[in-house]
Design a protein around this nucleic acid. Structure first.
Lengths: 193, 193
DNA sequence: ACTATGCTATAACGGCGTTATAGAAGTGGC
DNA sequence: GCCACTTCTATAACGCCGTTATAGCATAGT
């Protein structure tokens, strides 16, 4: 049974790393711990992912896949502007549900890590999902016309600001971050209309 | 001449660390390199700053001091709303001029580092400088009345979003970040008026 | 002059990412 | 059946990190 040892496949390693990231945060993401959690040796990580950065890239893409899915799950109604507002709420929910993935994706929590071009492409793909909804709103004359990608970037930046600060609990300790996020999202959508 | 060795005072160490951070980025901030750049031994860093986190705290406070100074330098006119817009520009200029300090302050670039309560207090102090200007705008009936600190946090979040993304060159490579920042700042100030 | 104190530099410890090395399992030819 | 040969594995080593222990030396007090 089993080819030779326990099945330390790429999926097993990735799952172990993802769990480690979710449960103990980025500092638990060491090659030795990932390999031990997956039941294999450190070299296994190197042969399958080329090193720590390869695993981080996979987790990065995993995060953007989840974020893209969350955006996709937002229902599309006849009011594209309301849909965009709901996208904002979904964005914040994603960040609060997967804070460590969010930090890996958007704050450079892991020191030497820089996402590979492929990984960045996955990020842009998630952004274009937002751009699609922006385009819909433009077509419905609910948003000022222009480059949908550029407008989507503005909305994204308005999301990232409060969410990023909330996750690192910056600012006054009694800050109502849900309120900050709501006000900011509303202001930017009104401002672009 | 000289007490005993070269003057590896706290200021010398801090200056060496700050230069290292500015010129080579956070990854150059190792205790050994800081000590060598300051002309002393590693123990020097420990006796004067208690460890690496102590130095990071000092750099963190240094960054917020600079940011506070930049906010203070924005001229105060009879149009508080225009002053706030200028504060936004000053904020982005600061981030672009001191990107590595900004990342230390706002993105958790350095892995295990968490700012001490004192350091966080310095951050809140810089934020209340923005809150003062918000209060002025409220007194002039240019902004909706409310808690100035909360409103300042909203404005801050609107600044941090685009600036943070720009610094890590996220998003489409041809993004006009100055434009994103301008649109977002204008939208949030209009939205709060 | 001599002890005591405090600061210094060096060395060591455990852990990190990564690389080199050696061993075991599978494969093809004869 | 047996022997190279390839391939994947696990272990150990290297140089770095933050931190701590240790030993040396300059000053202060008497």
């Amino acid at each position: 049974m089993a080819p030779r040892t326990a099945d330390t496949s790429a999926e097993t390693i990735l799952h172990a790393a993802s769990t480690l990231l979710a449960e103990e945060g980025p500092s638990a993401l060491t090659v030795r711990r990932i390999a031990a959690a997956a039941g294999g040796s450190t070299m296994n990580v190197y042969s399958r992912f080329g090193g720590k950065d390869g695993v981080l890239d996979a987790l990065y893409v995993e995060g953007f896949t989840w974020l893209g899915d969350a955006m996709r799950r937002v229902r599309t109604t006849s009011d594209p502007l309301a849909d965009l507002t709901r996208c904002g709420r979904a964005y914040r929910s994603f960040a609060l549900a997967h804070p460590t993935h969010y930090e890996l994706m958007f704050d450079r929590y892991v020191p030497g890590y820089e996402p590979s071009p492929d990984a960045k492409a996955a990020a842009i793909r998630a952004l274009s999902m937002l751009a699609d909804r922006v385009r819909k709103a433009m077509d419905a004359d609910q948003l000022r016309h222009g480059d949908p990608m550029a407008t989507a970037t503005v909305i994204w930046a308005a999301q990232h600001g409060p969410v990023s600060l909330e996750l690192k609990s910056a600012g006054p300790p009694d800050t109502n971050w849900e309120g900050v996020h709501r006000v900011l999202t509303q202001a930017i959508i009104n401002g672009l209309a």
